[in-house]
Amino acid sequence: MPYEVTNHNKLTLAIHSTDDSFGFAYRENKNSLSENFFTKKFEKDLCNNLIVDFSNFITKENLKRINKISVSIGPSNFNASRQIIVLARTLAQQINCSLDSFSSFELMAKRIATQNNIYIDKNSFWIFKKLKRRGYIAGKYEVCISEKANKNITIKEKIIPKIFEELTDTESSYQAEYSDIEDLKELLNLSNKNSQHSSSNTWEKVLPLYPISPIN
């Protein structure tokens, strides 16, 4: 049965995976200091460990407080992406809450833009991941600076990560860099922005991003 969520101290839950790890985080929607994180490297039995670790991470009382879930859809480890999205979809359906989804590259885009001062002399760039057998996975991102919000940087995903045989714009291309905690924080931040714009997404539309087959 769906949990009844009160209006007091609601939580946003984030679920994320990289090439070799997964993690959870939650935050009270109006309290940025209330964050709680869990990250772990993959083990052989990821399916069972994922459920056990999630059950140990969040209490039943906090589970009842969730009114929004935010999940990364890849590109990352094939099996992990599939399993965390199944978990996120199941929770969103049972709790009857909104489910936001973002590519893994979009989560790291603001961090990469800031570290490389991309916003100073150009406003778009690529994030890429070299494949073992052929080509690249790459996505394109645009830097937007808000004059109304103290010149805060926001990122728009112009091209979702997909397969390219070659990188044509090598001067504006940066290698993907996963960061468990920072990516989880960005999942929470982006989901919070959706809430401010009254954006609500249903679990049925959230699917893994699979640019390549598992054998790659």
Rank of each mutant, 00 (worst) to 15 (best):
K10W: 00
H16I: 00
D20W: 02
F24R: 06
F24E: 06
E28T: 05
N31F: 12
N31I: 08
F37E: 08
F37H: 02
F38D: 13
D45K: 04
D53I: 00
D53A: 11
D53R: 06
N56G: 14
I58Y: 05
K60Q: 11
N62V: 10
L63Q: 03
K64F: 03
N67D: 15
K68S: 11
I69Q: 09
S70V: 00
V71H: 09
S72H: 07
I73V: 15
G74H: 06
P75S: 09
N77W: 14
R82G: 03
Q83N: 11
I84M: 08
I85A: 02
A92M: 13
A92H: 10
Q94Y: 06
C97E: 14
S101R: 12
S103W: 00
E106H: 10
M108R: 08
A109Q: 13
A113W: 05
Q115Y: 03
N116V: 09
Y119M: 05
I120P: 03
N123L: 01
N123Q: 10
F128M: 15
K130W: 02
K130F: 14
K132F: 09
G139W: 11
Y141P: 05
E142K: 14
E142H: 10
V143Y: 01
V143G: 03
V143S: 05
C144K: 08
I145L: 04
K148H: 09
K148W: 01
I155G: 00
K156M: 05
K158T: 09
K158R: 02
E166A: 03
L167P: 13
S173K: 00
Q175H: 07
A176Q: 13
E177L: 04
Y178E: 15
D180Y: 02
E182R: 06
L184F: 02
E186L: 00
N189T: 14
L190P: 05
S191E: 00
N192M: 07
K193W: 01
N194R: 01
S195I: 04
S195F: 08
S198L: 11
E204K: 15
V206I: 14
L207N: 11
I212M: 12
S213N: 15
P214E: 13
I215Y: 15
N216M: 07
